[in-house]
């Protein structure tokens, strides 16, 4: 008897999300596990957004900082460089300078930065706060208004601030990232709470919280995998938004991307190590179900694109 490869069929489907106003990007929409296109339909490639910040990346390790030397002192130039020179399909602007422990920039400053960046690029924009619960609820409301009509992704709404942020994203017609801290049940709960406000579940992006290889990646992997299984095998609509892996910020703060070759010669080339670390972390999270990645190093992003080419 001829061998017949076993095929799974799934009852659910991931929501398809389109972002951007001029040029758009689309992700999600699959009714199969990651890259299982042989079992069903996976219409879109995962999208990689390049991370830029509202303040110069003083705290980034040299390997990734020097890539943006000369452009990173201004978010507009930086974003344009990512779009025009690096061919980024999307930009993720992180307003880290609004954090009270950093430059403590005001919501109005943040709104101006967002407007300036939006005026300079035509690819979709993801707008991220500084991950400070109180400040984000002011900043993300202000930037949502500033970006009205641009079909951006606003993030991240968390248990402690989702009401104001979701209301602002809804009023200004944006997509929204809902982030919970590595707990599938809380992730589902947050998606429920946001949709109970009247926010359309098909405009959500789930962030189960990222972690770098060697620093808890397996937890993120497992939560993402279970979210995707709930979406596909249990047809759980609360778990059907596409997922975000916010890779760069987790990878470029760990020892392996910073320790010098003089101190640890056995670890090999520092530059290669950092790039590989980001690429491997991102690739793993694609395998567990992420459809949207935020990354920092262009070489790592290119390696991941190649990885996607081979798997799609």
């Amino acid at each position: 008897m001829a061998f017949a490869a076993p095929n799974e069929t799934y009852s659910g489907k991931v929501f398809e999300v389109t972002i951007g106003a001029d040029k758009t990007a689309v992700f999600g929409g699959e009714n199969v596990l990651p890259f299982h296109s042989f079992e069903g339909n996976a219409p879109h490639r995962p999208v990689i957004a390049y991370e830029v910040q509202d303040v110069p990346p003083e705290d980034w390790p040299e390997t990734v900082k020097k890539v943006y030397e000369g452009v990173s002192n201004d978010p507009v130039t930086w974003a344009k460089y990512c779009q025009d020179t690096l061919n980024a399909q999307a930009i993720a602007l992180r307003l880290v300078g609004t954090h009270p422990d950093r430059e403590n920039r005001s919501p109005e400053d943040a709104a101006k930065t967002v407007k300036d960046v939006l005026a300079a690029i035509n690819v979709p924009l993801i707008i991220l706060g500084s991950n400070q619960i109180e400040k984000d609820s002011a900043v993300l409301v202000s930037v949502s208004e500033a970006a009205k009509g641009k079909n951006c992704i606003i993030g991240k709404a968390q248990e402690g601030n989702y009401k104001t942020i979701a209301a602002a994203a809804m009023a200004n017609n944006h997509k929204l990232i809902a982030m919970s801290e590595l707990d599938i049940n809380l992730s589902k709960q947050l998606n429920i709470l946001i949709t109970q406000m009247g926010f359309d579940k098909e405009r959500l992006i789930t962030d189960p919280m990222c972690s770098a290889l060697g620093y808890g990646l397996e937890y993120t992997y497992s939560v993402m995998e279970r979210i995707r299984l709930a979406a596909l095998t249990q047809n759980d609509t609360t778990m059907q938004p596409p997922m975000l892996a916010d890779v760069g910020m987790y990878v470029w703060k760990i020892k392996e991307t910073q320790a010098s070759e003089t101190d640890l010669p056995q670890w090999g080339s520092l530059a290669e190590r950092g790039i590989t670390w980001e690429a491997v972390t991102a690739g793993s999270l694609l395998m567990s179900g992420a459809e949207l990645l935020i990354m920092r190093h262009p070489e790592a992003a290119k390696a991941v694109e190649k990885f996607i080419d081979e798997l799609m």
Binding site: N185, L186, Q196, R226, A230, Q234, T238, M239
Partner: peptide, 9 residues
């Protein structure tokens, strides 16, 4: 079904 605090709703 996956548990969430609001599963009944």
């Amino acid at each position: 079904t996956l548990y969430a605090h609001s599963y009944l709703e």
